[in-house]
């Protein structure tokens, strides 16, 4: 049975497309490895010069004297991310539970796209909103309680970041909670449990791993966010001691200084190390979250 020329050509295209897509997929996976390797290779000079321990835990940041202690930046990142998580997680979980379990269909289908839309706003716009709205507001609110701050501080950055990660956490949590089989809810309700008891003791228990993964994804997003944070965090080279102190998170350090201070010996190598730390943290969080999610999906099917 002879194939027509057209069929043969279609088959050829099919094979070629599949091959090309396969190559592309592998290629994008490879990019991460190549970047990580490149960063590591470039950070070798500074690692030879200073021990990793002193790089990570020293606060002496005097590039001109060849002292690169990253602690202020690491602490800055931790403070800002931590604040964002504290502010974001409770309202996100409540919103997600409401949308998944209580909201009538109309509200659920109306609100979810709006929340997802938040995810598409360019981060520089969040930054501008932070500078124009959040920073003055924080400054004023702190004044009412007798504190003085410029407003460019951990709290402002935390607020901006929290809003930025809302859609990440809410979207995934809604999906996870809705994936819990209806029959399990029915089993609990049929025993005379209230809806809230059912959610608390059964649904969230079943969804726990997934919700945790959603939070971790939000966290890694907050940890790596650069532009918006850089605009509102204050960027002072000092470990913050409170929510109203300025912070200088790692991504802001890299974005502000890469390319400008390259004449200083070892400076570029120090920046590469900062990149490597950032990439490492974000990758590890992401991979952990994805692994949990994959396991859950398997379990549900």
């Amino acid at each position: 049975m002879g194939l027509s020329n057209r069929t043969k050509r279609s088959l050829l295209y099919d094979r070629a497309a599949a091959g090309l897509m396969g190559v592309m997929t592998r290629f994008s996976g490879l990019i991460v490895v190549v970047i990580a390797a490149g960063l590591f290779w470039k950070s070798v000079p500074i690692l030879k010069n200073q021990s990793l321990f002193s790089l990570l835990f020293s606060s002496e940041w005097y590039p001109l004297r060849g002292q690169f202690g990253f602690l202020p930046f690491i602490m800055g990142s931790l403070w800002v991310t931590g604040t964002a998580m504290i502010l974001a997680v409770p309202p996100c979980l409540l919103t997600a539970i409401y949308l998944a379990e209580y909201a009538p269909r109309g509200i659920r289908e109306g609100v979810r796209p709006l929340i997802d839309l938040l995810a598409g706003i360019p981060s520089v716009i969040y930054g501008v909103w932070g500078v124009l709205v959040v920073v003055p507001w924080v400054k004023r609110a702190a004044g009412w309680f007798g504190y003085s701050t410029s407003g460019y501080c951990v709290l402002s950055a935390g607020i901006v970041l929290a809003v930025m990660i809302f859609p990440v956490i809410i979207h995934m949590t809604v999906e996870i909670v809705r994936a819990v089989p209806q029959e399990i809810r029915e089993a609990s309700l049929s025993l005379g449990a209230t809806q809230w008891q059912t959610i608390k003791k059964v649904v969230l228990r079943k969804a726990f791993g997934g919700v945790l993964a959603a939070i971790v994804l939000g966290l890694s997003r907050a940890f790596g966010e650069t532009m918006a944070v850089l605009m509102v965090a204050g960027n002072a080279v000092r470990s913050p001691a409170g929510f109203l102190d300025p912070a200088y998170p790692l991504p802001a350090l890299i974005a502000n200084n890469y390319g400008e201070m390259m004449s200083i010996p070892l400076y570029d190598s120090a920046m590469m190390l900062a990149c490597l730390i950032l990439l490492g943290v974000v990758l590890v969080f992401n991979i952990l979250a994805k692994l949990v999610l994959i396991r859950i999906q398997k379990e549900i099917q």
């Binding site: 089993a187 049929s190 005379g192």
Partner: peptide, 18 residues
């Protein structure tokens, strides 16, 4: 809840609580 408590429900596929 009082009504449902009066009646045990057994579904098609067993659904143990987690």
């Amino acid at each position: 809840t009082a009504i449902r408590k009066k009646m045990g429900l057994l579904s098609q596929t067993p659904r143990p609580l987690p």
